[in-house]
Structure formats: structure tokens, C-alpha cells
Design a protein around this nucleic acid. Sequence first.
DNA 1: TTTTGTGAACTAGTTCACAGCT
DNA 2: AGCTGTGAACTAGTTCACAAAA
Lengths: 221, 221
Amino acid sequence: MKQTNKRKPTTEQVSELTTNRLSVYLRCLNQLEAAGVETISSQALAQQFHLNAAQIRKDLAYFGEFGVRGVGYYVKDLKRHLRQILGLDRRLRVAVMGAGNLGLALADYPGFRREGFEIVALFDVSAEKIGEHSRSGVPILDLKDLRRHVRRDRIDIVVIAVPAESGQFVLDQVVTAGVKAVLNFSPGALKAPAGIKLKNVDLTVSLESLSFYLAQDEGGE
Amino acid sequence: MKQTNKRKPTTEQVSELTTNRLSVYLRCLNQLEAAGVETISSQALAQQFHLNAAQIRKDLAYFGEFGVRGVGYYVKDLKRHLRQILGLDRRLRVAVMGAGNLGLALADYPGFRREGFEIVALFDVSAEKIGEHSRSGVPILDLKDLRRHVRRDRIDIVVIAVPAESGQFVLDQVVTAGVKAVLNFSPGALKAPAGIKLKNVDLTVSLESLSFYLAQDEGGE
DNA sequence: TTTTGTGAACTAGTTCACAGCT
DNA sequence: AGCTGTGAACTAGTTCACAAAA
């Protein structure tokens, strides 16, 4: 298991599909570790979690040689490597824009904390909300103070959960404040400058895509 | 603008990437219509919303010939066609599994209603929650009664917003109740039988993918 | 033997570029 | 003249299949 001196791939070289899967693999490994499994082959991993063995190996190969031929992967070991590749070997600090229903729910989402993300604040413009807290105690701060808090609290990632009409405005604020990575739930195509990683989760598009499936199912053969 | 007698594509033939984009196009057209635009070329549409003109034309071409050469597309007309293709020309009835923070937020999400989806119920197992309502008045019902409500209320789509550990159980219930389309927010790979359309939104994967980007950005050149 | 890591083959998706319609 | 609709070219992503390692 030599630590390959393979050129560290830059963000552009590895597809987002691959990085998404790395995250999935990590979750699988967590389960395996909890179940006391010490080593696993790509074959077995694929079978157990409905993945493709060759794809697992290829995805991992972008970053090094983590397996042992004839054996497979040491669960603990691969887990550690994946956490390092995904940048989860440090605490990542997250802020949520918009203290509406969705923003509050995301701020308290247990899955984030469980994976090591720290939700440090919610931001809103509504005077009634500012100064309050989410159920789990995340403070709601004034959007005006975003820039200061981003610096002071070293916020790494922002989640945008504001209505469509304020999406672009809020994103601009976030970018100005110096945040480099944004998960956006606000519908519509936001424009971000180069160097900013913007990932969209579009709830309406997701539902409409299901609607399409149903429509075909009925109208079709 | 002849109505092509092109064979109606079945679900398998059109990629999900395409159907997702159709939904995006529809939203763009809504905006254009609201702005009083009557006709638009693929070129102009692409420019205005950061899309690709050839891709727009190709996506639409799967379903017919909706444009007029030399002119472009009639906004109202194309909108109508897209709504029909996406199956939005009827009211779609949606239920949300899990009346936790996320489930409640999704049930009250204004974007769904705006696009014509009707959120008819939340389902949960907790005795304290059953009988209550979301802020906007969606009733919280007993998961035990799911099957009955799916039939009576003709529920088309289910959104799963329950903790990871109950995800598979709830999906199985939903499938048994006869629902064919599911939007799943529960983490981990759920297994659905063939004929069921399962779409996953994995919040943790999304955040970890952003984390990867940040890690590369710093560690890299 | 077993299983990785990986070139080669394949499949899917995007973009180009232009014939043909209005 | 202008723009669609679409084959052809290209690019990206997946899967196969096997040599090499343990």
C-alpha cells in the first residue's frame, strides 16, 4: 500500500459525480466499521450497498492506492483516507441564510452535526427573528453583520434557504463576505463568480421530474 | 408548428438530466411570461438564463416541434406544452413522511404549492404529533393509516423526511401503499422495487462535496 | 487464489454546424 | 435573414477485462 506520488488532482480534474460517491462510500464504511467489519473488497462493498465495484476502484484510484491486492481495503484505513480527501479531517463551520421553516430545519438537521459540520449561525433580515434561536440553539443574526461573522467565526460553507426573489441578493452578500462554497436551496439559476463553488438543490425541479415519470407511466404503454 | 407524430418517449428513453432541465425551462418561461415576453429564441433563452441553446432545442425535440423557424418559441405555447409533458396539467397530490423539522418545513414549502402541487398530509408514528397540524394547516396522520389515505386521497408522490434508520421501513410502507414516485431526503441508499421512481436528495453528500472543493482549493496549487 | 488498479471498450451526454423551414 | 431541428463530432462517464501484486 505505497502512498502514491500521484499528482494531487485539482478540483477541475475530478468529476463531481466522483466526489459525491466518495461521500457515499464514507457513509458505507461508517456502517461497516460500526458492524465490526475490518476489511472489505470493492466487490463486497458494491454488493452490499448497490454500487459498482469497478467504479469504486476507479474513484479511489484518483487519489492513491488504498487497497491491498488479494485482500481489499482496510475499513478504518480507507475511512481515514476518505475523510482526509473530503476535507473532513477538520471542523467545518457552516452558516444558514434565511431563518424560515426550511432554514431553521436545515440548521437543526442532525445529519450535518453527525458528520462533523458545525452550524454556527442563521442569518435573516427580519427584526422579529434576529436575536432568537433555533430549537437546538443556533442564534439568528442580522444579515448586515454577515461579513464580520464570516471573518470572526471563520465560516467555511453557507447554506442558502431564502425565497426565490432574494436568492441572488443573498448570494452576492455571501460571496462579498468571502465565503467560497455555497449550498443553495433557493430556486432559479443564481450567478456566482468564478472561484465560488455553488451547488444547487432544487426542490421544485425534483418534484416535477417525478411528475414527469408519473405522466409517462400513465400515458405511455 | 405541426404536432409531430413522433413516438411518445417512455420514461427510459429520456434522461433524467433532460427532464430536470425541462423543469428549469418551464420556470424560465414563467418569468418571461410575467415580464410580458411573447416569443423567445433558444439563443436568447440560453443567454438570459445561462443555458446552452443547442441543448434547449435538443431537449425539446424529444417531445415534438414546438418552435417556429425564423422566430423562436411562443412563450405561452411552449409553457403549456412543457406543463403537459411534465404532467403538471393536473393537480398532483403529495404526502410527506416524517413530521420532524425537515418534514414540517417541506410540507409548508411555498414553492411546491406555487407550482401546483398539493400537500395533503404529513405522516408520523409519534402519538404526540398525530392529530396536530403544520403551521400552514397540513394534518399529521398516523403512518398506520397510510395505505387507506393513499387510496382515498389519491396521493401521487411521497416525500420521505425521516431519520436514516427508519428510511427503508418507511419506503417499504409507501411502496406497499401503492405510491409510484418518491422524493427521499433520508440518507443512505434505499432499495426500491422496479417500477418505483425514487429520487434522492442527500444533504450530507452535498455538503461533503463542497468540503472536498474547499480542501482541494487550499491543499492544491 | 484473490482482489486491486487501470488501459481499453463502451455508453451517455453535450456541443457543433448546417440543411431546411418560415 | 433568422432560427429551428438534427445528424455528426466530440467529451464525459461507466463498465469490462486482465496484468500485476499480495
